[in-house]
Design a protein around this nucleic acid. Structure first.
Lengths: 115, 115
DNA sequence: GTAACCGCTTTCCTTTGGGAAACTGCTATC
DNA sequence: GATAGCAGTTTCCCAAAGGAAAGCGGTTAC
């Protein structure tokens, strides 16, 4: 059986794909999530770990990721309070997405650039 | 076995994922590919089918998609020449990517918006 | 010959994303 | 009391993305 994309697959899923890309898009979202998957971190630790990001952008992206429940902001009532960002359990749902994207990206680079 | 993203999965694949998103990104690339998967089309047919796109953007995106071998531009020596754009056979390689993105996007929308 | 269609390109403009730097309020340390 | 660190916010700026409108060279239909 020929496994073309069917019309249904194409049009009915376009919105879903666009929604997914909206959440993952931009220069920093995935780097931040992946840094937090490695280990939870505080704001200034993220600034150091995610190379090149500015505090404005980091704050902005963390809010976006929090809204999408991929990152959790935890406040500890120490003095002074400590604030720690973690990758949520839900962020594991990205695993399959990231794997297929990574596989395709690797294969594609090889096809187009030959390396 | 706990199926966390491993450190290796995270860092070594980030570049691949970013490369993949670079190719798929933007407002119009996927709509164009999906329109062409349904049926090959001429320039002005695409203008009508991909609602809201301007000729400048369409020309630009078609070039990008051609460079990435997802779309083929065929010139027929009729008088006047007719130019037809088709989804390439290689564009089928996007099937898995689109499916996982679509699944995740659908689930995610449900989680965040409850619909 | 003129009006219309095809496949674009050009120009100009607005919106969006991202970055640099300074600054703020708070706390802790010296 | 001065300095430094934390967790950001504010301001200003630049570049890239995207859109609206017009134009252009060719062809064909009237």
């Amino acid at each position: 059986m020929k496994t073309n994309l069917t019309k249904a697959e194409c049009s009915s899923n376009l919105k879903n794909v666009i929604d997914a890309l909206y959440v993952l898009n931009g220069k920093w979202k995935l780097p931040i999530v992946l840094s937090l998957v490695n280990s939870p971190k505080r704001f200034n630790e993220l600034i150091k770990d995610v190379e090149g990001i500015s505090p404005k952008i980091l704050a902005q992206e963390l809010k976006h990721l929090e809204q999408n429940e991929l990152v959790v902001r935890k406040v500890f009532a120490t003095t002074p309070v400590s604030i720690v960002y973690e990758a949520s359990e839900y962020s594991e749902s990205l695993k399959d997405v990231l794997r297929t994207l990574s596989d395709w990206g690797a294969g594609h680079r090889k096809k187009i650039l030959g390396r």
